[in-house]
Nucleic acid binder design. Sequence first.
DNA 1: TTGACGTGGTGTCGGTTCGACACTAAGGTT
DNA 2: AACCTTAGTGTCGAACCGACACCACGTCAA
Lengths: 229, 229
Amino acid sequence: MSVTYKHPRPALAVDCVVFGLDEEDLKVLLIRRGVEPFAGRWALPGGFVHEDETLDEAARRELREEAGIEKVYLEQLYTFGAVDRDPRERVVSVTYYALVKLSEHAVRAATDAREAAWFAIDDLPRLAFDHEEIVDKAIARLRGKVRYAPIGFELLPKKFTLTQLQRVYEKVLGQELDKRNFRKKVAATGLLIELDEVEQDVAHRAARLYTFDEKTYRKLEKEGFLFEI
Amino acid sequence: MSVTYKHPRPALAVDCVVFGLDEEDLKVLLIRRGVEPFAGRWALPGGFVHEDETLDEAARRELREEAGIEKVYLEQLYTFGAVDRDPRERVVSVTYYALVKLSEHAVRAATDAREAAWFAIDDLPRLAFDHEEIVDKAIARLRGKVRYAPIGFELLPKKFTLTQLQRVYEKVLGQELDKRNFRKKVAATGLLIELDEVEQDVAHRAARLYTFDEKTYRKLEKEGFLFEI
DNA sequence: TTGACGTGGTGTCGGTTCGACACTAAGGTT
DNA sequence: AACCTTAGTGTCGAACCGACACCACGTCAA
């Protein structure tokens, strides 16, 4: 089966920059390409948009198929349309970025016999196509967004300590923050719920666990709120 | 001449939300559609992406062809990909927003025998396709961006008074600002150059003219600056 | 010419927020 | 019991913020 059009059309793809945070670093998920062009190179998970799915659906499908990732924070980033960004034929790519809780998503490593791996954002290999540019844009967006929207929580497990939360901000922003000032600020947002639990199995004083107050957040969001870290 | 592909592909279009500011309001440029679907309805200027042009180029070409607008601030907004957003066939639209100096762009009203007109953003007619959603997104983006990037200047002539600049911010943000505080803030940015000129032909004391200091701005931008109104 | 009108242009002050900064508490390990 | 590691907490000065009112200057009409 094939389709004929009066004028040529670019192919339409989606590509996703998936961020995760582990003990050391902010990382991006990459897939090693098996076929030309750029066979053997690392690339962003992605693929062509199907006829009957929206762009968001295509992005989620690719995340599921290529990395076994589901139910994550996902937001459209930018659409890349340079004429020769794919050497085969013209492909326009609508890109997304996703935030995953690494602790809960052990990311199926090799679907379709494909190799997948996490790379620290300041130690990336050379990427296929214009994917380096896409990652740069995603990092810039994440840095901007984290300042005025509470998306840092998306990188942490449901229950987290304040020190973990501070580390998220430090890794994303690439700068150290003052512990006391940080705690003052997050307390001032009123968006954290203090739990009656502490972390387990640590070789030092255990820290109190908190959780993000989504209900209050949604309420504030509707009223045209503010939020700053 | 026609083209055949193995799989169906959505058509790819660009649409532009063009903002301009006149004495009264922040306005959006619309074009009246001559053909079905939505014949007679107002719509955003836009059209299909050609094979050999980037998305940005397509947006600029459509602005030129449909409204005679050139050399404006143009930035990609979002890509809309709902499956049935065009009743004829699937069309994915990469949208842009543009800021024009209404004073200098008298916008050729009717190219291609098409009718074009400016509408105040809180008095828009019903629009074709999902263009209302696109305009909403553009307004939200403009409101966000104007706070931390000096794009207000793009809506004014090269030389402007501080009162005019304040009006830009008031119209874009939809709220009144304090004159003295506003002047303190813009002075503090160091991005305005005070000219040895005053406005002409006004029936009251003439205001001093200023211009935006692009060189200093570009320098600050590279150093990772800050800016807030 | 003078007075009225309309917009331009300017400074202070109290409240809030900001960042810098250091010690004790708790729990586990040896 | 001593020690090691991380948790948790408050103050103070500086900068910033928003609220607020009056005189200056130019035009126009009487």
